[in-house]
Design a protein around this nucleic acid. Structure first.
Length: 241
DNA sequence: ACATTAAATTCGA
DNA sequence: TCGAATTTAATGT
């Protein structure tokens, strides 16, 4: 049953109370650049929720169209075709905030968001987001940097998708999950299995497994059970070129 | 696709 | 609550 969403409204810890200033600083690196009054406003408009592995994250059920951050855990963004075949576009690890496009344009989500493991999410309601976008210079600075970084991310993706073969492609895919601009504060370890890495980089699990071992032999990553540790991010980024 | 190994869960004391 | 037994998940080929 592809794309099956978790029971709506069954989440135990949704609250409408907002989040403390200290908590905001912890879950949103961008907030550190905001002046006090703007940060307070941001904190008041954010709510957190936890999703179990495999759950479909549907903010429409709770807060209509909110801007979304990954606090801990890992999610993937993709679609599932009518036949049930799912396509993964990108993963977002802890520290990543996304969805500003749909919030700004106020349109329905076009992609499925699925938790790859137990994941804590933060949602900023649309009025708060729009207020920051219209009033905060610092927040706009962040948005521009983030959008620019993502544009670069997808340009690179287009380029290497057609030029490189499996191992370098996987290398860049992993490196993108450790992008310090998009996903600040991430460590060097990511809990993700090889099947998901395969889906993320568009290859079978078998090929992903072979490529991963090649990367490990070259000393750029270390394989763990159910996860991966990056040893040399710079080399991973430019692997094979 | 299958065999192996790691981890999570259950169950009995 | 401890640890052995069983089941499930991830990996390696």
């Amino acid at each position: 049953m592809p794309g099956a969403c978790a029971v709506p409204g069954a989440e135990p810890d949704a609250s409408r109370a907002g989040v403390s200033r200290a908590r905001l600083a912890h879950i949103a690196a961008w907030s550190l650049a905001l002046p006090e009054d703007e940060a307070a406003r941001a904190a008041a408009g954010i709510v957190e929720r936890t999703y179990p592995r495999g759950a479909c994250i549907c903010p429409r059920n709770t807060v209509l169209e909110s801007w979304t951050g990954v606090v801990t855990g890992l999610i993937k963004i993709g679609t599932v075709s009518r036949e049930g075949r799912s396509v993964t576009f990108t993963g977002v690890p802890a520290g990543g905030w996304f969805g500003e496009g749909t919030v700004l344009k106020n349109e329905a989500r076009r992609y499925d968001i699925v938790a790859l493991r137990s994941t804590r999410m933060a949602f900023m309601d649309r009025p708060t987001f729009m207020w920051l976008a219209e009033n905060s210079v610092a927040f706009n600075g962040f948005l521009v940097r983030q959008l620019n970084e993502r544009l670069g991310h997808f340009m690179a993706l287009l380029e290497y998708d057609r030029l490189l073969d499996a191992t370098p492609r996987l290398a860049r895919c992993i490196a993108s999950l450790f992008n310090p601009v998009l996903y600040p504060g991430a460590g060097d370890y990511l809990e993700i299995n090889q099947e998901e890495l395969g889906l993320l980089s568009g290859m079978t699990r078998q090929v992903a497994n072979q490529s991963l071992k090649a990367l490990q032999k070259d000393g750029v990553v270390r394989l763990e059970y159910g996860g991966i540790t990056v040893i040399d991010l710079e080399r991973l980024r430019s692997y094979g070129s």
